[in-house]
């Protein structure tokens, strides 16, 4: 069972449908006990950083997530969910994130259109089971205005070019982040979710 953390607004249904297709059982929850019982956690995300952190705090989930992930439970952060894994974000002032990964989130500079919206290519930086059967320059669907600006290069699996190099897939052991929406990225996205499913033993 994979728990999808439900912290309010946005389209989570597409993610549930994608997991269903892959026969990966999931539940949408804010119950800390369910999160403890689950074999993996998905932190989805749309909306604002600060609001999302506040929602996690109000549901008493910050500590549970940190503890479960530190103990080795696989976690996939999608879009804002990936950004929340970092230490801080400059979205709406400086906000503290979950701090599971070193680095910070900054706004994409205005030399390009913001939000970064649409299909962009994955440039592989290192090999990982998370990108198994995914080709170099495969297209995935992005929609975001902020990105992981300072992060450890050793944790970068794929990047995409949008004015600057935008981290697209990051990994630190059992923690995976995808800046794009795998559930909206056609066959490539489904493969990536399948690969995450493969990490869930």
């Amino acid at each position: 069972m994979i728990t999808i953390i439900d912290y309010g607004a946005g389209n989570i249904k597409s993610l549930q449908f994608a997991l269903e297709k892959l026969e990966l059982e999931s539940i949408l929850t804010t119950d800390p006990d369910e999160i403890k019982k689950a074999r993996a956690i998905i932190l989805p995300g749309v909306g604002a950083f600060e609001d999302a952190m506040l929602a996690l705090k109000n549901a008493n989930l910050v500590h549970v997530i940190q503890e479960e992930v530190t103990n080795g439970k696989p976690l996939l952060g999608i879009c804002l969910g990936m950004q929340l894994l970092y230490e801080t974000s400059s979205e709406g002032g400086i906000s503290k994130g979950l701090g599971l990964i070193e680095g910070k989130i900054e706004r994409i500079t205005d030399t390009v259109k913001v939000p970064h919206m649409g299909w962009n290519t994955l440039s592989m930086k290192q090999n990982s089971t998370i990108v198994k059967h995914v080709e170099q320059n495969a297209y995935v669907y992005f929609v975001h205005s902020y990105y992981a600006s300072e992060m450890n290069a050793s944790e970068l699996v794929c990047s995409t070019a949008y004015g600057i190099e935008v981290p697209a897939i990051i990994q630190k052991d059992n923690i995976i982040g995808m800046q794009f929406h795998p559930e909206k990225s056609g066959k490539v996205g489904i493969q990536l979710l399948k690969n995450f499913g493969g990490m869930v033993s």
């Binding site: 607004a9 946005g10 749309v46």
Partner: peptide
């Protein structure tokens, strides 16, 4: 935009 995010 405030509630759901500009992206949508």
């Amino acid at each position: 935009a405030k509630k759901f995010g500009s992206q949508c």
